[in-house]
Amino acid sequence: MVHVLGSRRRSQPAPPHVVWRSLRDPYEAGSRPWLELRDDEVPPRVVAGYAPVLVVWSSLWPHRPLDRVRFDVAAQPPGQGCALRWTLTTDGELPSESTLGYLRHRLNYLINDRLRLSYGQ
């Protein structure tokens, strides 16, 4: 059974295809660095995707290998960027409340701060 551990939807200043590419390959040559991992994190693998609306990552946390991060990218009116929702799910054990808070905070920071700033906003 898949459990939703957290989700947040926010706007991004870049258009959907740019955000999708940033998520598909966070280390793409020529892009601004935004995915700065901590010592307890590993680079995600893309486990599913459909351009330019969906990317699914493997877990960033080796101690939580069954977690997944789903990104849903939705177009907004021209010139208004896109809406991006991250959803953290797991097929595994539910984390403690403190761990869950950390995971949610970390994803929110990476996506709604670091990624947003990489577009100059």
Score class of each variant (00 low, 15 high):
47 V>Q: 05
29 A>M: 07
15 P>D: 04
43 P>A: 03
59 S>K: 02
27 Y>N: 09
68 R>W: 05
70 R>W: 07
54 L>G: 05
43 P>C: 05
35 L>F: 02
52 P>H: 11
72 D>H: 10
75 A>L: 07
41 E>C: 07
62 P>N: 10
29 A>E: 15
61 W>E: 11
71 F>I: 13
56 V>H: 02
30 G>Y: 13
66 L>T: 11
28 E>P: 00
73 V>N: 02
22 S>H: 09
51 A>P: 14
30 G>N: 14
60 L>T: 00
12 Q>W: 00
30 G>L: 13
22 S>D: 02
67 D>A: 15
25 D>M: 01
15 P>I: 04
66 L>R: 15
15 P>N: 04
17 H>M: 11
53 V>L: 00
26 P>T: 05
36 E>M: 05
37 L>G: 09
19 V>A: 11
38 R>E: 15
30 G>S: 14
28 E>M: 09
19 V>M: 05
72 D>N: 03
69 V>A: 05
74 A>N: 13
21 R>N: 12
42 V>N: 06
57 W>K: 00
61 W>T: 03
36 E>T: 12
13 P>Q: 04
68 R>I: 02
39 D>I: 01
43 P>D: 01
56 V>F: 01
49 G>S: 13
37 L>D: 06
30 G>A: 12
32 R>M: 05
53 V>E: 13
13 P>S: 04
53 V>Y: 09
65 P>A: 10
21 R>H: 14
58 S>A: 10
38 R>G: 12
68 R>A: 08
42 V>R: 06
29 A>F: 11
18 V>S: 10
56 V>M: 04
70 R>N: 04
39 D>C: 07
13 P>E: 07
46 V>W: 00
62 P>D: 03
74 A>T: 13
20 W>D: 06
47 V>E: 06
31 S>Q: 14
49 G>M: 03
30 G>D: 14
56 V>E: 07
18 V>K: 01
36 E>H: 13
24 R>P: 03
24 R>V: 00
54 L>I: 01
15 P>Y: 05
67 D>Y: 15
43 P>E: 03
42 V>S: 09
59 S>D: 03
51 A>C: 09
46 V>K: 01
50 Y>W: 03
72 D>W: 01
